[in-house]
Design a protein around this nucleic acid. Structure first.
Lengths: 205, 205
DNA sequence: ACCTGAACACCGTTCAAGT
DNA sequence: ACCTGAACACCGTTCAAGT
């Protein structure tokens, strides 16, 4: 919650010098491959080796694993943000817009094994590198959620936090589903149906 | 799927010699404390140290981390199995019986951070130490699920695998919720409501 | 401003030697 | 039948020295 944390995130910037940018990008590329293959717990030394840089170079650009994870998915999250804005501006079916966007969010939040845990963990930790990501997803969802509520397709008492919990839980299910059958789509369908005003759900305590 | 895997699990047995049993139990106690504090990824060396045994002794009883995790929760799972049998025999509300039991299952499956991932991962791996656990939960749920379907409170097309996915996803949400607010109860409520025959859920592809 | 790699700490895992 | 702890491999992380 310190103002310094909000002010400037040094790890968020690409280096200015040409060789620095080249290494920075090479590390990101290698990280994406490694995370895709072995999850977000992949060996940082292997990533540095694949990128052709010394381990110290990796730490220079990304002081913690979470900063590296954040950087590998930043563009996808921007895209998710834009998709939400596009859906909210359109005049399509409010529930359809929400569910379509949620499915996209689930895909993005399950890009790598372990990502959903990182995202869930950073939500309530203001200083975390992924906290900004988490907040962005919350904000992106808000207008879509509001529109679905106004159209009486989603219960009034569903909060943005709960929607985020639904998305990350489904993303986790996707990460942990066998390749043959992805359970997350069915879980999402159940949860969205359960969030309907017509569903029999006890009020929150 | 090899018959040898089904036949006998050496790590599943408590040792016969007195000193062996003492160490075995001490390791289990230490593991439960460590897993509760730091999750299922806790240091095995620390656990051995807390138990007052050499690291080789721990490996002698529990050749892999998963075997140790399995042993720490075996009694809880037996209890869950018995609870299901009790609910199925009773003549209470079928949906109430199912949801009560599911909530208990969620609690048991989220005893330690990381347990839900272990459980989800072992479902489709026949040789895994936790596979038997996973199968037990599936089997325990079956009669409760059948009763709820017969009473027309749960959609006919909901499978035992999906019910298990619902439980583990909620368990994961519980593991990853802040201490102040446990999102899993709400997610469970949404999913159970979404599994109702009256809910608007598209049929499976 | 950025890169390098040695150095240290810690942990997982195995295994020869013991009782 | 079980225990011990040294030994090896691997990885995370830091930092003095370089360009």
């Amino acid at each position: 919650m310190s103002p310094a944390a909000e002010a400037e995130a040094p790890w968020a910037r690409r280096p200015k010098r040409a060789d620095g940018r080249r290494n920075y990008d090479a590390i990101l590329d290698a990280a994406r491959v490694a995370f895709a293959e072995r999850g977000t717990g992949a060996s940082l030394e292997d990533i540095a080796k694949s990128a052709g840089v010394a381990i110290g170079t990796l730490y220079g650009h990304f002081p913690t694993r979470e900063t590296l994870v954040e950087a590998t998915i930043r563009e996808q999250l921007d895209q998710l943000d834009q998709a939400a804005a596009a859906q909210a501006d359109g005049d399509g079916d409010p529930l359809g817009s929400l569910t379509t966007w949620m499915r996209l969010a689930v895909e993005h939040c399950s890009t790598y094994r372990g990502l959903a845990s990182f995202l869930a963990g950073s939500t309530y930790t203001a200083g975390a590198p992924l906290h900004h990501t988490s907040v962005t997803v919350h904000k992106a969802a808000a207008p879509l959620l509001a529109r679905a509520k106004q159209a009486d397709r989603i219960r009034e008492d569903v909060t943005a936090e709960e929607l985020y919990a639904v998305i990350t839980a489904a993303a986790w299910a996707r990460e942990n589903s066998p390749a043959s059958t992805d359970h997350s789509v069915r879980l999402m369908a159940f949860m969205v149906a359960g969030m309907s005003p017509s569903a029999e759900v006890p009020a929150r305590a």
